[in-house]
């Protein structure tokens, strides 16, 4: 628990900043909705007729004029990009920063096993993601209440649950990568999150590339799919959970044998 506590303590400023930033943007977007609602019929038609662009952001199956449709598209982008980047960031730096900042030598010459280090750091990653997501959901629900809209709570929670699973997958894959690299891999983490995001967009646009949606975690966290059927895609999310589990095993395996770079 000592390492877990230290990681949480050291990551708290970053967690607060990311949580505030994402929450604030969601809040602002929802505040705009009442104003836009009146003009929505025209806007919806416009958005629905932008071809690939419409498909790319899932606006073909969501009605932008309804609160859930609006929330799905907005939330999908803010929470998708923001949450994924944050997850990538904390995942990639959990192990690698110890080596980058030369603190691994200090930490690992204490009587702690590598397994325990990986375990506590993984918990720290999950814990931070849980805090971020709970805070964001609460801000969202409060924002709905402020603008007087009654969203489909079940769909909202399901959507955010999918985002959470997606962030855990991205965070853990980056975590596993960081067990292999010698120095901080911030670029790798952010790059990975961005590529996964674009995989999903490409998968949305082209039917030939639909398989990409089975690779990227954004595939099962697609607001337009979740809100229209009100359930998660079993296959995609199973693949996601499988990848997450593989990443965890790989991280444990690799880190317990790793030569620490000093």
């Amino acid at each position: 628990m000592t390492i877990f506590k230290l990681d949480i303590k050291r990551g708290r400023i970053s967690l607060i900043v990311w949580t505030l930033a994402i929450s604030f943007m969601l809040f602002v977007c929802l505040m705009i909705f009442p104003q836009m609602k009146g003009q929505m019929n025209e806007i919806s038609d416009m958005y629905a007729s932008m071809g690939s662009f419409t498909k790319a952001f899932g606006m073909d199956s969501l009605n932008f004029g309804e609160i859930m449709g609006f929330y799905g598209v907005e939330c999908g982008n803010i929470m998708g990009i923001g949450g994924a980047l944050f997850a990538a960031l904390i995942g990639i730096s959990a192990l690698a920063n110890e080596e980058k900042n030369h603190t691994a030598e200090f930490l690992l010459t204490h009587p702690v096993s590598r397994i325990a280090v990986v375990k506590e750091k993984l918990f720290a990653v999950i814990f931070q993601l849980v805090i971020l997501n709970i805070a964001v959901v609460l801000v969202s629900l409060a924002s709905f209440a402020i603008i007087g809209e009654k969203p489909d709570i079940e769909a909202v929670l399901l959507l955010h649950f999918a985002y959470f699973i997606m962030q855990v997958e991205i965070g853990f894959v980056c975590f596993a990568v960081s067990a292999f690299i010698k120095r901080g891999g911030l670029g790798i983490g952010i790059g990975f999150a961005a590529i996964m995001y674009f995989f999903n967009i490409i998968g949305n646009i082209s039917e030939d590339a639909e398989f990409l949606k089975y690779i990227t975690p954004f595939g099962y966290a697609e607001a337009s799919d979740i809100i229209s059927v009100n359930e998660l895609d079993g296959i995609k999310i199973s693949i996601g959970i499988g990848v997450t589990a593989a990443a965890v095993i790989l991280a444990f395996y690799r880190y317990s044998k790793k030569d620490i770079n000093i």
Partner: peptide
């Protein structure tokens, strides 16, 4: 490691 006290040649600690 419980019974070892180690001093590295160039000690680095957590910033902040």
């Amino acid at each position: 490691l419980e019974d070892i006290g180690y001093m590295p040649s160039e000690a680095m600690f957590y910033s902040g």
